[in-house]
């Protein structure tokens, strides 16, 4: 039998009961610490969300900072999103065209690409890219503000850092990421038209009219709602990781990294949930 090294002995002092010693091993303690950390991190994340909600509906909304964040998140992401959206549509067409030709269904190419871009490819790929670009940016920026005491400086200036830094970023991400996804979808269809013209000849107007004729509200609406949630999750996680960063410079890197990892994971999980709900509809 494996010998357990006792690190903690608990001897209950109860009269008239046979004295017992409970032995807890280091391994068990380690597990309990891990569970404790996980639970407290989850609780602190939900507490952070409740603080965001409270600060969002409080007085003195920071419009100027909100518009600045919209510019940072939306406008400054355009080159990356443009290239990504175009290439996704192009590659999807190049990959699927030969199969459709084999089945004699090449005329279905515009509709197929448009539906797959709008329902799944566009939202998920763009959200993952935004998690990398915007989520890490927020984690690193707020983390470095925490390390250099800028957040404390706001606090003592009678400002509410939650309202100024977090609410503006979360709302800007929630608004701009769905718009970026719509823009990427359009460029994806444009890329698909370019792909279709590599080995074929199809006019721009015919391709687009065929593409849009296949799209129904049930394709568009759930996907759009999903991207709003993706935007909110990316904003919340990026701000949470930055806001709760430690004190050293190392923690800035950790905040940025963990913001990307957690927001990407949550985007995928949300996508799964959204797919199930859409399937039920």
């Amino acid at each position: 039998m494996k010998k357990i090294t006792p690190v903690l002995k608990v001897a209950p002092i109860i009269r008239n009961v046979k004295k017992q010693t409970i032995v807890i091993s280091e391994k068990t303690l380690e597990k309990s610490r891990y569970i404790n950390n996980y639970m407290s991190e989850t609780a602190s994340f939900f507490l952070f969300i409740s603080r965001i909600i409270k600060a969002t509906f409080s007085r003195d909304f920071e419009f100027r900072e909100f518009f600045r964040q919209c510019f940072q998140i939306g406008y400054k992401s355009l080159p990356l999103i443009s290239i990504t959206g175009f290439i996704v549509g192009l590659v999807l067409t190049i990959q699927s065209r030969p199969t459709l030709v084999n089945f004699g269904a090449v005329s279905m190419l515009p509709g197929m690409v448009a539906v797959s871009l709008i329902r799944e490819m566009g939202p998920v790929i763009i959200a993952l890219i935004c998690a990398g670009k915007i989520g890490s940016g927020m984690g690193a920026e707020l983390g470095s503000m925490k390390v250099t005491e800028q957040i404390d400086a706001m606090e003592v200036s009678s400002a509410n850092p939650m309202r100024f830094l977090v609410v503006t970023r979360v709302l800007a991400a929630t608004l701009m990421i769905p718009l970026l996804v719509l823009y990427a979808d359009l460029l994806g269809i444009l890329g698909s038209w370019a792909g279709a013209n590599i080995k074929g000849d199809v006019s721009f107007s015919l391709f687009f009219s065929q593409a849009f004729s296949q799209i129904k509200y049930i394709d568009f609406l759930p996907a759009f709602v999903k991207t709003i949630l993706f935007g909110a999750v990316i904003g919340i996680v990026g701000c949470y990781k930055g806001f709760t960063a430690g004190r050293g410079t190392e923690s800035v890197g950790i905040a940025a990294n963990s913001a990307v990892v957690l927001s990407s994971l949550l985007v995928i999980v949300l996508d799964l949930i959204a797919a199930q709900i859409t399937d039920m509809i």
Partner: peptide, 26 residues
């Protein structure tokens, strides 16, 4: 806190703002 000024060890100037905006903030 309006009555208390606090000078931080690192200065804690807001990196994304100009000097004027830093002073306007409080």
């Amino acid at each position: 806190r309006k009555k208390i000024g606090f000078l931080f060890q690192s200065g804690a100037l807001y990196d994304s703002m100009t000097v004027k905006e830093n002073l306007e903030f409080p």
